[in-house]
């Protein structure tokens, strides 16, 4: 719930994700929070952004009604285009998608993501699978990852690499013929991260009320920070503005995704 800060973790994640969409970008929007984040971005700093959805929807403005899924009728109503998956995926494969959004049950040091199967003790738990995530991870010019901040999700090496990030780091993507740019940001419910020149995750900012020391133990490796990679200090993630909060609550009036 919103609590004393006046906003929820997820509302802050929406705000941070929206800022990752630049004006003029074509964004590949998936499920859950990015459905809200695109609508916030195009209503504020990125009026010339476009959204594409693998279902075949192309939009340039917010939907007039809550979006539970990308195929909800408000997302199709007065869309720029409703077409098919190969049309959308072809734009991705041509290299025309500036930014794509991803999530995952597991993420590792180099931003590889697992949404297929995870280990829990001596058992394996089956998850839904890739959907379009593998395609977005391979081919978008840059990707932004959104995840709940839970230590079990941060692993040295993903159990199954559904959506390649920077592989084992360095020039791994080029060496493996993976064409897109890979992940540039991870936004969790506690902090925001970037990827350094070697493709390794580093702590960029902590959300208000969270400390760096609180974040470190959640990672099974020595987590780098902005300081370690030579780009200044770990900052505090900006709080969502009143405008962004009010838009978020307009697009998610019952708080289904963001409360």
């Amino acid at each position: 719930m919103a609590g004393e800060r006046g906003y929820t973790d997820r509302e802050l994640m929406v705000s941070a994700a929206a800022r990752e969409i630049e004006d003029g970008d074509t964004a590949f929007v998936g499920m859950r929070l990015p459905l809200i984040a695109f609508q916030v971005a195009v209503s504020t700093h990125a009026p010339n952004a476009m959204a594409v959805y693998e279902s075949g929807v192309v939009r340039d403005d917010p939907a007039d009604g809550f979006l539970h899924t990308m195929c909800d009728l408000p997302n199709l109503d007065r869309a720029v285009s409703t077409t098919g998956m190969l049309d959308i995926m072809s734009r991705l494969q041509r290299g025309d998608i500036d930014v794509g959004f991803l999530g995952g049950a597991e993420i590792d040091r180099h931003g590889n993501l697992n949404t297929t199967r995870v280990r829990a003790g001596d058992r394996e738990i089956r998850l839904p699978g890739s959907g379009g995530a593998c395609d977005i991870a391979c081919m978008a010019n840059r990707t932004v990852i959104l995840m709940a901040h839970e230590s079990r999700r941060f692993v040295e090496r993903v159990h199954y690499n559904t959506s390649p990030g920077h592989g084992t780091g360095g020039d791994w993507r080029e060496a493996n013929a993976v064409p897109g740019g890979g992940p540039v940001a991870l936004v969790t419910s506690k902090a925001s991260f970037g990827f350094d020149a070697d493709g390794e995750l580093y702590l960029r900012s902590v959300h208000p009320g969270v400390t760096v020391d609180e974040i470190r133990p959640d990672f099974p490796w020595e987590l780098k920070t902005a300081e370690d990679v030579g780009i200044g200090e770990v900052t505090t993630t900006p709080e969502p503005t009143e405008e962004v909060l009010s838009l978020t609550r307009r697009f998610d009036p019952d708080g289904f995704w963001t409360q």
Binding site: Q93, C134, C138, N161, P164, W172, N176, V178
Partner: peptide
């Protein structure tokens, strides 16, 4: 396709 390579898929 240019997708898939590099993934466990």
């Amino acid at each position: 396709t240019r997708s898939l390579l590099g993934s466990d898929v």
